[in-house]
Design a protein around this nucleic acid. Structure first.
Lengths: 150, 150
DNA sequence: CCCTAATTAGTTGTGCACGACTTAATAGCA
DNA sequence: TGCTATTAAGTCGTGCACAACTAATTAGGG
C-alpha cells in the first residue's frame, strides 16, 4: 500500500490525519480572533456566549449549553466571569428554581455594536470564497453530526 | 440584505459562523477519540505527540512545537506527563545544551501497535467519503495557512 | 400525597493552551 | 576575546473543557 492510498486509511502519519487539520485550524482561527476580542474584553468562548445572547436574550444555562455544545461545568465559571465584567446577570427562574436565566445588561447589549466588525475581519482573514466557506461549513457540520451519534 | 446573503457576510448569528462549526467539530472529534485513547492511557494532544514521535524519534521540543503548532509552555508539562508514564525520555543534547531531545522508550515504541486501529475507527466515525475527507483537509489547511499570515 | 427518579446548576480535579516572563546556553560581531 | 542579542526550554497565571460528583428542585407514578 503506497503513501497516497494510506491517507484515507489507517495511516499514523500526522499530516494524513483530518483530525489534526481540524484541531490546528480551530486553534489558528481562535488565535486570529484573540486580539480583536481582547479589544472587547472577551475571550473566544465568551464571544460565542455573547453571540447566542444577542440572538436570544434570557436563556437558561441548559439551552446555552445545547447551543454551544458545552457542559454546565464549563459555562458556569465562564458566565460568572462575564457577570463580573458587567455584561450579563444570572437570576433563578421564579417558576422553576432549578433553572437560571441569563440576561444581558445594557453594557452587554451595547457591546453588540462594537462586535459587528469582527466576523467580517475574520472572514477576510480566512480568505475563502463564498463557495469554499459554504462547503467548509457543510463538511464540518456533517463531521459533527456523524461523530456525535453513530 | 436577506438572511442567505448575510451568511458569508457580517452576520452575528452563531449558526452562520464558520468559526463555530470549526470549534464544535474539533471538540466533537476529540470527544470521539477520548474513550479509544483512554485505553492507551493517552489524551488527545498526547496522542498527537506520539504520532510525531512514531514518525520521527529523537526530536527537539522546538521541532515538536513546530509540527504541532504548540508552544513550549504547552508541551513541557505534557511531555513531563508522558515521561512520568514511561513512554518517553527527555535528555539535553550534548552538542547544544539549550535543546532537549525527546526519545521514545521501548514502551512508547510498542504503543504504536495498539494505536494502529485508532485512525480507522475515527475515520469510520467521521463517515466521510474519500473525496469529502480530501476536500475537508484541503479547506482546513487553506484556512490555517491564510489565517496564520495575511 | 408521598417518595423516588429525573433535571438543573454548580463544584472539584485534571489537563490543555497561551501570554508573559525566567534561566541557561549559544551565536555572532566589534 | 568579550559582550550583546538570540534561541531553547521551562515556570507561572488565567481561562477553557470535561468527567465525576453534589445540592437543590421538580416531576410523576403508586
Amino acid at each position: 500500500m503506497d503513501r497516497a492510498a494510506e491517507a484515507t486509511d489507517g495511516s499514523l502519519l500526522l499530516d494524513d490525519q483530518l483530525c489534526f487539520a481540524l484541531y490546528a485550524a480551530s486553534r489558528a482561527v481562535t488565535a486570529r480572533y484573540r486580539p480583536l476580542l481582547e479589544e472587547l474584553g472577551l475571550t473566544y468562548p465568551q464571544y460565542l456566549v455573547m453571540l447566542v445572547l444577542w440572538e436570544q436574550d434570557s436563556i437558561s444555562v441548559r439551552d446555552l449549553g445545547t447551543a454551544l455544545q458545552l457542559e454546565s461545568s464549563t459555562l458556569s465559571p465562564l458566565l460568572k466571569r462575564l457577570e463580573a465584567g458587567g455584561l450579563l446577570r444570572r437570576e433563578r427562574r421564579p417558576d422553576d428554581e432549578r433553572s437560571v436565566a441569563i440576561r444581558l445588561t445594557d453594557a452587554g447589549a451595547r457591546l453588540q455594536e462594537r462586535a459587528r466588525t469582527v466576523p467580517l475581519a475574520i472572514g477576510d482573514a480566512m480568505g475563502l470564497t463564498a463557495e469554499q466557506d459554504a462547503m467548509a461549513k457543510q463538511l464540518l457540520r456533517l463531521i459533527s453530526s456523524n461523530v456525535a451519534d453513530g
